[in-house]
């Protein structure tokens, strides 16, 4: 590990001070399950590490009067699982359960989970976020890489297992810091706050200086805000090779607004298939106005992957993404998913 300077702010504004110092490169530390390993391997080499676990406002869980659930970014995943507030957000609960390691759940935070870096073995092997401008994955072993959104240099898949559920449920993230939401070019010292729809929070980097989120170095996610789940049937289904914290081969989260037996509106988001969580409008459109059964779910799965562009070695992921979508929809509607 490169040596770095360390600070543990106790307020949001202190954190912003520490992050806003443009003379040093900074990383935000919460649970450490991702960052510390990356620093040990010298993949990430900040001058300064800012630990946000000691900021009380980031560790709160709050149900607002309007039904929104405000989850502090530094709330650990096990705290969430144990909390009554997650009732109704089955897609989130199932995604957290899928992580399947007590240690990661107790140590990892929800903010860290959505901001974790790609698992891509080229990135983690020291060959850059994009893996030599995308060439490493294009020419090399891409069995776990993207089957959507992979026409640019980014071929990795977004790692977050919870983000698809959050997007499906219409969540937002509260971002504070320099020119919040204006991107990395915001003027120094300008501080703001805004709620970013979480779907817009993720981006596909086009070059090595970009990251997988819109967060600028002087910005911080403080909360994840979920709308009330009332009337929304939802679920997450992950296709996992085996037990343990290994990442799924493909996953999907489904949120269905039901009108009696029929789907009034739907949002279906796939995970582990693209450099960002991948919202499939086609699958959602197919569901509208129909009641869910196996045939409809299968058709939605088919629609979800119709435009997939697998790389040389990952065509099998198209089938897995299709099954994940189908089973997430079935689970959301309360039907058996099939499988084990």
């Amino acid at each position: 590990m490169k040596n770095f300077e360390y600070a543990a702010p106790t307020t949001e504004s202190e954190a912003l001070q520490l992050l806003g110092d443009s003379s040093v490169s900074t990383e935000i530390l919460a649970g450490g399950t991702d960052l510390v390993g990356l620093m040990k391997k010298m993949i990430v080499t900040p001058d300064r590490v800012v630990n946000i676990l000691g900021i009380p406002s980031l560790r709160t869980l709050e149900r607002r009067v309007d039904g929104q659930l405000w989850i502090g970014a530094a709330v650990t995943l096990d705290t969430l699982l144990d909390s009554p507030y997650l009732a109704g957000y089955d897609a989130v609960t199932q995604a957290i359960r899928g992580i399947n390691s007590m240690q990661f759940q107790c140590q990892g935070t929800i903010g860290g989970e959505i901001c974790q870096r790609p698992q891509c073995w080229f990135f983690r092997g020291g060959r850059g976020l994009l893996g030599e401008g995308g060439q490493a994955a294009a020419n090399g072993d891409n069995r776990y890489h993207a089957i959507f959104g992979n026409d640019g240099p980014a071929k990795f898949v977004h790692s977050s297992r919870i983000a698809p559920a959050l997007i499906a449920l219409g969540a937002a993230v509260r971002v504070i810091g320099g020119a919040a939401g204006r991107g990395p070019d915001g003027a120094d010292g300008e501080v703001g706050e805004r709620l970013v729809p979480i779907a817009e929070f993720f981006q596909t980097p086009r070059h090595e200086r970009q990251r997988e989120t819109i967060l600028a170095p002087n910005q911080l996610v403080t909360h994840i805000v979920l709308p009330s789940p009332a009337g929304i049937a939802n679920a997450t289904y992950e296709v996992r090779h085996g037990e343990g914290p290994d990442y799924p081969l493909a996953a999907a989260s489904a949120a269905l607004r039901m009108d009696g037996e029929r789907v009034a509106d739907a949002r279906i988001v796939m995970g582990q298939v693209a450099p960002t969580p991948w919202n499939t409008v086609a699958a959602a459109a197919l569901l509208r106005g129909r009641s869910i059964d196996e045939t409809v779910a299968e058709a939605a799965g088919q629609a979800a992957v119709a435009d997939a562009t697998p790389l040389s070695q990952n065509a099998y992921k198209v089938q897995l993404a299709k099954v994940a979508v189908k089973r997430a929809i079935l689970a959301a509607a309360g039907h058996p998913t099939g499988g084990f």
């Binding site: 073995w121 080229f122 020419n139 037990e243 343990g244």
Partner: peptide
């Protein structure tokens, strides 16, 4: 392409777990 041993960390080198 590169000859790299890509899954040489336990994160990627999949072993059976207790539930398997």
């Amino acid at each position: 392409a590169s000859g790299a041993f890509l899954n040489s960390e336990l994160r990627d080198y999949k072993l059976a777990r207790l539930g398997d």
